[in-house]
Amino acid sequence: MLRSLFAAAVTAVLAAGGAAAQDFPTRPITMVIPFPAGGSTDLVGRLIAERMTAELGQPVVVENKGGAGGNLGAAQVAKASPDGYTILMGTVATHALNPALYKKMPYDPVKSFAPVSLLAIVPNVLVVNPEFPAKTTEELIALLKANPGKYSYASSGNGTPLHLSGELFKSLAGVDMQHIPYQGAGPALIDVISGQVPIMFDNLPSSSGHIKSGKLRALGVTTAKRAPSFPDLPAIAEVVPGYETYTWNALFAPAGTPPEVVAKLNAAANKALTDPKVQARFNDFSATPVGSTPEELGEHVKKEIAKWAPIVKATGAQLD
């Protein structure tokens, strides 16, 4: 009798859970962006959140939670209820770089999340204050070699793709400059534009408007080839052979989120990427829309971890 009652109770709970997943979403969804407002992850996240809101019929509300190179925001989502109402705009930093950089991680990049969809590939860019004497990557390298340790560069934080872009540049170009970490690309850009720090590695989306307006001077993109939106801007690799970095954005839910919920989030995210307005905005800052299945994103994360671990080790970068 007791066994029958227990089985009936379990069946009822499972049925209720299935119904909840089928009705998802019935209330607002929080998209955690693990960096402050103003950077490329924030730009991509807000574009996708707005379009997903239309698709899902419930608000997708952006919450910026920066700190620890993206670890704080990612950990918040990893520990959230696996019901689909808290999702993460993950990046190469949160899921590939940080596991190699930090001695202790507050989450597992593979086991703590349910992959939803790979959204975009984003180039980085080397920029300087317009008053800075170097007008090309060649001139910058010459200036840095003539003045080792004199100049500094800003990034969105310790261990971020932008930090590693700078460290890889130093290593391959044979130059020395000081790293100034900020709590996100937005605050770093303010200081570079004002001249407090002369050099920065940034995501192209967050710098593109400032480059076009003349508030920043771009020296080169970090991808192996030139960016379509800035065809006259050389790739750093044209001057420093072998140099290549970039970032990506992807959507994740907490591990254990029901497959039906993941499927609805995946469909909404991938539909957002087909919107002409989203594609046009992505094109403005040279972000390439991707889209994927959850399984494809899961494989992408594993490949990125394997790719970046030796690069991080070669730079000698390590964070507590």
Rank of each mutant, 00 (worst) to 15 (best):
A317T: 15
D23T: 06
K271Q: 15
Q76S: 14
A80W: 07
Y85H: 14
S206C: 07
L216A: 05
V312I: 10
A224N: 08
D108H: 05
L273W: 04
A8P: 02
S171M: 15
E295F: 01
A188T: 10
L162M: 13
F201V: 11
Y243F: 15
P59W: 07
E299Q: 12
K79H: 10
L164H: 13
Q22W: 14
G45H: 02
V127S: 03
L56E: 04
D284A: 06
E299I: 01
D202Q: 11
L233Q: 03
P59A: 11
E295G: 01
A154N: 03
S155N: 13
T315A: 04
A68C: 04
L319Q: 07
P123C: 08
S156Y: 03
A235G: 03
L88A: 04
H300E: 08
G159L: 08
L97M: 07
V110D: 05
N129F: 00
L56K: 02
K212E: 15
T223W: 01
G70N: 08
G298Y: 06
P294W: 00
H179Q: 12
A37F: 06
E50Q: 12
V110A: 02
A54E: 11
A74H: 00
G157P: 12
G38E: 00
T288V: 14
I199E: 06
D108Y: 00
Y246I: 01
L319R: 06
A269P: 11
I193M: 12
R51M: 08
T137I: 13
M31L: 15
H163P: 03
Y151G: 10
A235Q: 00
Q178W: 09
T288E: 14
K135W: 00
G195I: 02
A114D: 09
K150C: 02
V175M: 04
P82M: 07
I33M: 03
Q318G: 08
K104I: 02
L144E: 12
L47V: 08
A8T: 12
H95S: 12
F169W: 12
V278R: 04
A309T: 13
K303Q: 10
T53I: 10
G195R: 05
K271R: 14
E139F: 02
A93I: 08
A224K: 14
P259A: 15
P276V: 09
V122A: 03
L140C: 03
A314W: 05
A253W: 07
G242K: 09
G184C: 06
L168W: 12
T91A: 00
H163L: 05
T274N: 03
E244N: 13
F252G: 02
E244Q: 12
A255G: 04
I193E: 13
A317L: 14
L189K: 00
T247W: 04
T257M: 09
F285A: 11
V278I: 09
L297Y: 04
H179A: 14
E244Y: 10
K170S: 11
K277P: 05
G66Q: 07
F230E: 05
M31H: 02
S171C: 05
A142R: 09
Q76T: 14
G84T: 14
S4I: 11
N203S: 15
T91E: 02
T223R: 05
